[in-house]
Amino acid sequence: MTDARDAELEELAGEYVLGTLAAEARAQLQQRLPSEPALRAAVDRWEQRLHPLTELAPAQTPSRLLWTRIERSLAFARPAQPVATGWWNLLALWRGLSLLGLTASLVLAGWLVIRTVPVGSPTYLVVLVAPQSNAPGWVVQANDPREIQLIPLGRAEVPADKALEFWTKADGWQGPVSLGLVKPGETLHVPLDKLPPLQDNQLFELTLEQKTGSPIGKPTGPVQFIGRAVKVI
């Protein structure tokens, strides 16, 4: 590359990082970045040069709701890694699951499989865990892709003026869909005839909502239990 072209690239990268490129030029540069290592390297150098200037903006404490919003959105963000490498890798969020909890829930799930299915086996299994402690709280079992059962592993504590609402979302869906309110300690049978068949990696969660359920048809309260569907061989 000639010096002149080199200087041009540096200048473009510098204006991009500085922030003075107009919308169209910014968008064009961002499109070029993945395929042009020289441009990317120039941008990276400018990011490093100018980064200390971020200290000039005074820090501002976020509102208390910001993290909750982020956490809610994470449940529906696509996982960072490709998921084609097998179901153990899907389950990074279960890493903290205790050996005891894992064993207990799988034994129970296995027992349910044997007990309720005369031929074949459930196609999908979900263990719903508490997001903070990773303690297993519920198992979702599907004998049939058109019906699921939500089975409690313990008795969840729910404040008197609140209810647990059950949600699901598969990859590619616009948003989560309510599967109804859940009574703590009781098995819930949910027909899925109005929804597409269950999918691998489909997300299930229980959120804390007002007594009559979420008023807006989307989860609004904190996630109490969460898990993804895995195919059972």
Binding site: A57, P58, A59, T61, P62, A80, A92, L93, R95
Partner: peptide
Amino acid sequence: ARGERQALQHLYEQEGARLLGVARQL
């Protein structure tokens, strides 16, 4: 990258206010 949500929360606790300050200034 391994899917550990706690790590993102630590990052938020560490840098949330400074990132918000940078965005707010812009």
